[in-house]
Write a protein that binds this DNA or RNA. Structure first.
Lengths: 321, 321
DNA sequence: ATAAAATGTGTAATCGGTTACAGGTTTTAG
DNA sequence: CTAAAACCTGTAACCGATTACACATTTTAT
């Protein structure tokens, strides 16, 4: 491993001068600068970030806490984070916390042990404050003082309900989604605010998870506990898909007998038949903008808008009449 | 931040003794050990890994290079990696390299700057040797001397072909997958080895990507360039899905008119209708076993079996006759 | 011409750990 | 009883960077 000391020796100056030359800090004479540049090139030197980090008490690493990577929404978000981070010389450390507060605590501790300089959290757990570092919530905007990037879920809920209404639904089932996820509540209240004035009857179905493993059971439950309905507003696309499958299996036609709208716009939503009409969440943008806000906080230490809300969008395909 | 020095002062011993007590290295008297433990508890001390890493020239971090997180196969693999790493006190750093050698080089350099102690790579790029650290290939086993964990793709190809044969296909289209991905070649040769003795005619369709963006165009291409076929062996489930959609759109019935078999077993493959018959890749296990092999290499510096091949499995659903 | 300001550079302290080494004490063995 | 072995502990060097500070030299201003 070639160190700054090697560069100093090769170029005949002190390590301090090398450091200054490399970081454009302090005064460095023209001759020295050139000798250092030559030495760097000749030796193939690049600085050890661990040493730098030890002194600076920060690093070019950010943490990303996700509730469940296998939920297809999150990889997209992660990609947004990764892209922005990578473009700006940061690395991202992945933490899959699975709604497990212990895992989350463990990661936050890990992060502090490695001088991670900021964290992005899409997990639903209580915000862990023990490690004081820029912290941004993704897809969640619980408290006043928090920085966050999220989707305007209330609007998303409205959009879904309006689409159902416009397509002439009579009896709708609205899946509530997990109550501990604020976005799910917003969607529900958004949807209900439209439905209440829409002249159709509806029932709210409680579901306590976004987990993909539960999708099929939930779909079966739906058909077994409710009888006559012609429209369903699903918690997300995975659940919508499960409902569609169960519906077709039971001999209902989509969208003629039952129309379904999803939420998320996963890649497979457009690849299935019939194509799923859904509310597109800007997953990639949430990640990208979140990373941007975080790096702004870390580097410039100031951000104009603490709470960024991105707009969801209705994607019309063929699962509505 | 509480440092080892604080612990030393609080407990009235030297930092060397504290370090020895914490790491169970060298001799430490019973009284000292107890005093140190008390101090650690009282002060809430935990060691700074950056400092440790600087001296040790290694860290408890591993890098994971992925070609495309938005391809649903990889999050599952990543989850396997993350689970094993996390259970063993390691963190994983994510690198989405997108078949871009420059990005890959950048990450490898990043990794070395942070004393990452090993890397797992599922990227198709040439193996980057510049940073000498345990390196494991996932889903790829190019050269003799490499460590790797992969799926027995040849077997997977055979399984797919056998299933098609058994279901009575007459004219099959086999998607080749990208030629630079060794697994894709293995699948193809496996499938062809069965098909060649199966008494059915087939054509190989060249496709140059696994990227999800290309799926729909590829499906359309398929129907426009080939005329009479009744079976397709798709590159993966995403492509299978795109083909199914296009088939249904064009009025073909599945599996009656056209039967399709996929590869991967993504979560949505079982949620669609008709359920997609496919070859399940042990994505999670590849990640999990890869992480295990890597940590074994890092810690014990020895691994019995350099090349681990996991078995794919036929998942029978309803897209074959 | 001279004081002040700006520039250039090296030495050494620092970040928070680990560990070689030296010196002292206790235990064990013969 | 005494030498050797085992045990305990602290001082200081080290890992590879950054930067405060001191000192010298050059430039600028008056």
């Amino acid at each position: 491993m070639v160190t700054i000391k090697d560069v100093a020796e090769y170029s005949g100056v002190s390590v301090a001068t090398v450091s200054r030359a490399l970081n454009n800090s302090g005064y460095v004479g023209e001759k020295s600068r050139i000798k250092v540049e030559e030495a760097v090139k000749a030796l193939g030197y690049y600085p050890n970030e661990v040493a730098r980090s030890l002194y600076q008490k920060s690093s070019k690493m950010i943490g990303l806490l996700l509730p469940d990577i296998s939920n297809p929404y999150f990889p997209l978000l992660a990609k947004g984070v990764e892209d922005y981070a990578q473009q700006n010389g940061y690395m991202v450390i992945l933490g899959n916390v699975e709604d497990n507060p212990e895992k989350e605590d463990m990661y936050v501790k890990f992060f502090s042990q490695y001088n991670i300089s900021g964290v992005l959290s899409a997990s639903a757990g209580k915000k862990n404050n023990t490690y004081r570092v820029p912290f941004i919530l993704l897809d969640r905007a619980d408290e006043e003082e928090d920085y966050s990037v999220s989707t305007d879920d209330k609007l998303g809920g409205k959009l879904a309900a309006q689409a159902i209404l416009k397509a002439g639904g009579k009896h709708a089932i609205v899946m509530a989604g997990p109550k501990n996820v604020s976005g799910a509540n917003d969607r529900l209240s958004g949807a209900l605010s439209i439905l209440d004035n829409g002249g159709l009857s509806y029932k709210v179905m409680e579901t306590n998870s976004f987990k993909v493993e539960k999708a099929e059971i939930t779909a079966i439950n739906l058909f077994e506990t409710y009888e006559s309905f012609d429209s369903v507003i699903a918690s997300n696309d995975v659940y919508a898909l499960a409902v569609m499958k169960e519906a077709i299996k039971r001999g209902h036609k989509i969208p003629e007998d039952i129309q379904i709208i999803g939420y998320d716009d996963m890649l497979f939503s457009r690849l299935m038949y019939p194509g799923l009409t859904t509310i597109a969440q800007p997953a990639y943008d949430v990640g990208y903008q979140g990373a941007k806000m975080l790096l702004d906080l870390i580097e410039k230490k100031t951000v104009k808008n603490k709470k960024l809300k991105l707009k969801p969008k209705l994607i019309t395909r063929n699962s509505l009449r």
